[in-house]
């Protein structure tokens, strides 16, 4: 009697296991279809010609549906960004790490508070100011004052040649 019960238990468990795998195989495509599709992934990197940008100017380009600020900084701005002591920063990051080529700051133009786009050349630190909830960023895009928790993000990018930046 006991032996029979065990056999049946095994069959039940095996059936449920196979059923669960089958259900998973059906459900996964229904979930995965909402992930970025091939046409979105194809647009995952953007190349920008920056030769026309003069010092002290910023351009904004669209990358993965979000704004990216490309600023050609003046020597004063660079000096200001590099002179800040790390202990004064809410999110300590060296400007040297954020802008490998000090003249160029390439940064995701999205406030780390709730996703608004900060305004250029505004705020108490001559950098950016977010109009939504008043976050102040310095000339390196680091948070100095206001509710945003972290510095503005630096995307992956590289100089393809002297004038072309490839973001992503």
């Amino acid at each position: 009697m006991e032996k029979k019960t065990k056999r049946r238990d095994f069959l039940f468990t095996a059936t449920y296991a196979v059923g669960a795998v089958g259900a998973g195989a059906v459900i996964w495509p229904m979930i995965d279809q909402m992930n970025p599709d091939a046409s979105v992934k194809a647009l995952a990197s953007t190349e920008v010609d920056v030769s026309a940008i003069n010092p002290g100017k910023t351009i904004t380009v669209l990358w993965r549906g979000k704004p990216v600020f490309i600023r050609r900084r003046t020597s004063e701005e660079i000096a200001e960004a590099r002179s800040v002591k790390l202990e004064d920063l809410k999110h300590p990051e060296k400007d040297e790490d954020r802008a490998k080529n000090p003249e160029w700051l390439v940064m995701l133009g999205v406030c780390t508070h709730l996703g608004c786009v900060p305004l250029d050349q505004k705020g108490d630190y001559n950098g950016w100011f977010c109009p939504c909830h008043g976050s102040h960023y310095d000339t390196s895009g680091r948070i100095r004052k206001g509710p945003a928790p972290t510095n503005m993000e630096i995307p992956e990018y590289k100089f393809v040649d002297a004038n072309i930046i490839k973001i992503g």
Binding site: P29, M30, D37, A38
Partner: peptide, 13 residues
Amino acid sequence: EHIMRDVNYGWLI
């Protein structure tokens, strides 16, 4: 065609 080619498992669905 976008569903068939680009969307994840779009062809299957």
